[in-house]
């Protein structure tokens, strides 16, 4: 770049700024279109809820489960919802959370464990706003922070147990993104379940090191299959390639976080679904009662936060399904303690 020219940039830059100001200023003040408000009885105050999520609201996984729960509750719980998706840059997410807080939203869902420290820093500045974050357990001892986490090891255990029953080769393969949060819990639960059914089973597990590298997940699945694995499972939004491997080799697949039967209607045995509705309803109830936080909610099989959805397209032996249902019952009633 020519150096002397750069000295002359000041004026043009100012011109741009002015042009921008004019363009913006001349437009009439616009209303923000974030509102998705509904017809509502006047007696109940509308709660303004914001969701800040690291992935897309159609990720077939973690974010989609939360987004759909919010949408489903919108009318019955009188919510006005605003969403910021794909906020995987932690610093940018922090700005967005801050912006929602300053606009007086009643509840801000910081839907990623990497947002926790941001919530911890912001909550004291906005005591009237409720923050919720997860998956995590800590409310940092603050009265306006909720925490929520998913005991995904429970469903993992049930599915691992069923997987071991299905396996003829006594080798199963489990794929995770990075070894943290509900993904790690699920992997550990699945392995524990498989070992509970069959002590000698080989339960291979791998973390690809990325939430978004489909190719690695698919390649890991292929390795498992080549080492004899005949049952596969995996967590995160990048499992589609791996499910493709299960499909190509006609192997059973167990899903988690969101219904994955759509991805392979003939291969998905069951999916562990996150149902955030009870947790959201509980939080909303707290907020309406004047309690802004301080509680940790855990999604479990026993409280309806997690469900095992069997895929009708997969012909699962009745005995295995019965065992799975029995395990769910047992876990619901605390008769089995799933290791974490």
């Amino acid at each position: 770049m020519p150096t002397h020219l750069t000295r002359k940039v000041a004026v043009p830059l100012a011109a741009v700024a002015m042009a921008l100001t004019l363009a913006v200023g001349s437009s009439s003040a616009t209303t923000r279109t974030s509102a998705t408000s509904n017809a509502r009885p006047s007696s109940i105050k509308v709660l303004r809820v914001a969701l800040v999520a690291p992935s897309a609201t159609n990720d077939l996984a973690f974010t989609e489960s939360m987004y759909n729960a919010l949408e489903a509750l919108k009318v019955s719980q009188h919510l006005q919802i605003s969403v910021s998706e794909n906020e995987f840059v932690v610093a940018d997410a922090a700005n967005v959370i801050r912006q929602y807080a300053s606009e007086g939203y009643n509840l801000i869902l910081a839907h990623g464990s990497q947002y926790g420290s941001t919530v911890e820093a912001l909550a004291p500045q906005f005591p009237k706003v409720s923050f919720a974050w997860g998956t995590a357990a800590s409310t940092f001892g603050m009265k306006n922070i909720f925490a929520y986490e998913a005991a995904s090891n429970e469903g993992g255990y049930v599915q691992g147990y069923m997987g071991a029953m299905l396996s003829k080769s006594h080798v199963v393969g489990v794929i995770g993104p990075i070894a943290t949060g509900d993904a790690k819990l699920y992997v550990d639960g699945f392995v524990a379940g498989a070992k509970a059914e069959d002590k000698k089973i080989t339960a291979h597990q791998v973390y690809t090191g990325s939430f978004s590298d489909d190719s690695l997940m698919a390649t890991a699945a292929k390795t498992f299959v080549s080492d004899g694995a005949d049952v596969l499972t995996g967590s995160s939004q990048s499992v589609v390639g791996a499910i493709g491997v299960a499909k190509a080799d006609h192997l059973p697949w167990f899903g988690t976080q969101w219904t994955q039967a759509v991805l392979a209607p003939k291969n998905v045995v069951s999916s562990q679904l996150y149902n955030w509705k009870p947790t959201l309803i509980a939080m909303i109830k707290d907020i309406r009662a004047g309690k802004r936080g301080g509680a940790t909610y855990v999604l479990k099989l026993g409280n309806g936060g997690e469900q095992i959805q069997f895929n009708p397209g997969y012909k699962l032996a009745k005995s295995i399904k019965a065992k799975g249902l029995a395990l769910i019952k047992a876990i619901e009633h605390n008769k089995i303690k799933v290791p974490t």
């Binding site: 794909n86 978004s212 489909d214 190719s215 589609v240 390639g241 499910i243 493709g244």
Partner: peptide
């Protein structure tokens, strides 16, 4: 080729 290997698109697929 990459897309068909993965079977789905996502943000920054190419890594």
């Amino acid at each position: 080729a990459l897309l068909l290997y993965d079977g789905i698109f996502m943000e920054n697929l190419t890594q």
